[in-house]
Design a binder for these strands. Sequence first.
DNA 1: CTCGGTGATACCCACCGGGTATGACAGGGC
DNA 2: GCCCTGTCATACCCGGTGGGTATCACCGAG
Lengths: 287, 287
Amino acid sequence: MDTLETRELRYFVAVAEELHFGRAAERLGMAQPPLSRAIQQLERRLGVRLLQRNRRGVALTGAGEMLLHEGRAALDATTAAARRTRRAGGADRPGGRRNRLVLAVKAGASHELLHKLLDAYAAEPDAAEIEVLPSGLCEQAELLRDGRADVALMHAPFNSLAGFDSEELMTEGQIAILPAGHPLAARKSLSLADVGDIPDLPLARWPRHGTYAPGPGPEIRDQTQLAQLIALGRTVAVFPESARAWLWAEHTAVPLVDAPPVVTHIAWPAHSRSLALAGLIHTATHL
Amino acid sequence: MDTLETRELRYFVAVAEELHFGRAAERLGMAQPPLSRAIQQLERRLGVRLLQRNRRGVALTGAGEMLLHEGRAALDATTAAARRTRRAGGADRPGGRRNRLVLAVKAGASHELLHKLLDAYAAEPDAAEIEVLPSGLCEQAELLRDGRADVALMHAPFNSLAGFDSEELMTEGQIAILPAGHPLAARKSLSLADVGDIPDLPLARWPRHGTYAPGPGPEIRDQTQLAQLIALGRTVAVFPESARAWLWAEHTAVPLVDAPPVVTHIAWPAHSRSLALAGLIHTATHL
DNA sequence: CTCGGTGATACCCACCGGGTATGACAGGGC
DNA sequence: GCCCTGTCATACCCGGTGGGTATCACCGAG
């Protein structure tokens, strides 16, 4: 009577995201009428109006916004439970591998640190198998929440550590990556104001939650794209120092004196308590 | 095909906690056979053995342990979604009250701070209604997780802030609370070693997760009990300084020079983003 | 006024979650 | 050895309900 079923949450989230019963039903692989009815039942059981049905489409009420946020979190937690349970399943089956941990890392970031961590951990006596999951830009939090990853390397202030346990691993400055031939590439150091205002080299723009901020710079999606654009003399980028690991011959790195330092953390879901995870964290903090 | 239903999670958690299908079924208000079948279906769908059925009862496998932990978290998140949605529901109904926030506070702790916070926040122009939920000892985290509370005052190092966002509000020392007539009550200050080793005044023991640590002191459940036992000259207790607010005439407080400081935080679920909550946090951090 | 597109209603069916009765099996007492 | 007890699994049945199809009610745009 007061327990939401995950099916109901899935349905509501779909409708709330599409703001359209027909499209939501299609996305869910079902017909529209039963979806309509399910949402009505949900509203009756919660005793709360979730959607404002106007002429032409629907809108979320305050309660609907709340259920959208909280429901997403609940769905994530549920799928995380399923995924992690499946992953833990092989361990005690005859012939099953021992525990495996999935480590999410922003592709290309903290390469050296990651290397040292993996080597050091593999040398531990009862090390679990570590699967490295290269992730997109700010995706690590999502991966941890929905169980695709068990632990992640995250970079403050770019990633938010909210909701996770974490330990600090490393602090580094930032550098500007310029085309090797550019006049500024000869400088010993630069400031943020310098690189933010180069007429012929607009700062590249990364997608944030799927959308690009407005600006003159090129819209890029991955590091290779960016590296190429820099090499071609079309843009400039700001990165943590560890990005030197993947610089091209046609790139020049110049330290930024006033960029905020980047702190690499190892982060994991606050409630998780597995021996393998504890071992990895211990190794990471004692590198 | 790979979505766990909350019903299945509820069933499994019940069985995993009872380690007995019959008792679990009784707790769930159903018969044992359908429960057995549901768990089997769950194992089939996950492709993982969750329970070791030996002669005489059941035991959890590794995967079962994982699902117990993760499933509890998922269930908490789900009931939190329902509760918070219901609570948000009144807001935009005609005649409905405006947003309400539930603030969990350890009963009796930080009384003065709480008073100032409530007064200051009530003076804000668009303040939400604050419901104060007095909670047990380490219960605040649970209340935040399952949605009975939206925000809490927590006390490091007693409460763990893991999994929540938080801001520091106040740091205070600790005091020993003694019977007024006791010889040590005349001292200007004490050390932890002093109060831990008084032959006629064994330290009272609080329950931790429902069980008492072994020791000579009396087992107490609430502050009133404790206050009375101190007044009767039977025990001694260590508290943050703000506990002076509820001292009896027959109590004497003596500062502890070497007790770890207690830091009061305001904490909330990491993902929550409501205007009312933001306002309360802002007020709290600018007291 | 009609038409297109929206969500709601009506009705039906099959599936499955739940109940009861019973089985299989292992220990413990005598 | 026996039976009895307590456990979880199986067999079978039933009713509720989740889902489908057909259709309605409504409103804005022409």
